[in-house]
Design a protein around this nucleic acid. Structure first.
Lengths: 186, 186
DNA sequence: TTCTCTTTTTGACATTTGTCAAATAGATTC
DNA sequence: GAATCTATTTGACAAATGTCAAAAAGAGAA
């Protein structure tokens, strides 16, 4: 349950870190279709999915576009709002009944101010999600629709059975008709 | 010269921070075409451009793809390698004679270990570049070639006169012929 | 200036992906 | 199981972008 990039952190600090963060974490169960966050409001929570699936999405010309999927052990928030403390354009929706751990923005920052040694933990976390996002950019620049779909399926094989075609299509930047044809042709 | 997101940091700490980071920074002048970093090697430096332009790029099917442009006050590194300490697929090239400030990875981390209070500075930096990258993903998912070009020109109006068409084209994910036609049609 | 090299533009055509409408398949409720 | 939703697939065609080849324009060197 301890992510790869934290294995070099002093185990003593890590122990404290885990228990300190656990103290500001609450666990809830949410049903499918529940909105964890709604656009136009400031997102105060960082969520981690224990079981189930969530996605963040936003609207463009009436259509909705999936920005991110979070499966088991994945984190999700309205990142623009969470970082910059302004109204978000994202929604966060539960796609499959989920057990969700959540932390409040202010609690995280109070903890970081109190124990700056934990900043390193946050840095490693940010570095990881930055690398992931950079891969996504590369994916969009380099690969055609079929390749992008295949890449996503390699990373998350269960996704195709668990979420709507349309959500996956918008995530990889194609229409759902195109994705349907891509699936058909193999 | 102090970025927006640091204005809420204690000025006393910020003063020390600036002088401490200055101590591990060296300044060089590099001519056009100079390679700051070559693919296949581990990138040990974080660069900041004072004047001039640099770009990072990598290869795909013989073509090269621009991943990032750094203009005045912009930072650049082979991010995959710098964070994960492994061989990079990126090159970094000077496009216009440049004055470059550089810090060595190990010096940065030694400084952070010595003064963990600076981790917050790094976090804010990472948050900022994450937001920038998220905008880029949105740009690629939402907008067509002409819109992506216009968006880039809004952010960096000088770019079109200063760097090759082909570099800009690969950055926004189109061929240079397409970009040439986009430019012609206005 | 002339020659050469590099970059940009243009043309003709191919391929990929999008759009709109309708048909089919799958799920859910009564 | 029938009726009703919702999700997915299919067809016909349109629009955007890519490919390849060649021409034109621009930049630098002799």
């Amino acid at each position: 349950m301890i992510p790869e990039q934290f294995k070099h952190i002093d185990p003593f600090i890590l122990n404290h870190l885990v228990s300190d963060f656990r103290e500001i974490t609450t666990v809830n169960h949410f049903p499918k279709h529940h909105l964890l966050h709604e656009e136009g409001t400031i997102c105060k929570h960082l969520y981690f999915i224990e079981t189930g699936i969530a996605r963040s999405f936003y609207h463009k010309d009436g259509k909705d576009i999936t920005a991110h999927f979070a499966l088991s052990n994945g984190g999700i928030t309205a990142i623009d709002s969470f970082i910059q403390r302004k109204k978000s354009r994202y929604n966060i929706e539960i796609l499959e009944d989920a057990v969700v751990h959540s932390m409040v923005h202010d609690d995280i920052h109070a903890l970081l101010d109190q124990k700056p040694v934990y900043e390193k933990f946050v840095r490693l976390f940010l570095e990881q999600i930055y690398i992931d996002l950079a891969e996504r950019v590369e994916d969009l620049l380099f690969y055609n629709a079929k390749e992008r779909y295949d890449n996503l399926m390699l990373k998350n094989p269960s996704l195709s059975q668990r979420v709507n075609l349309g959500h996956i299509a918008s995530y990889i930047g194609v229409t759902q008709e195109t994705l349907s044809r891509i699936r058909a042709q193999k």
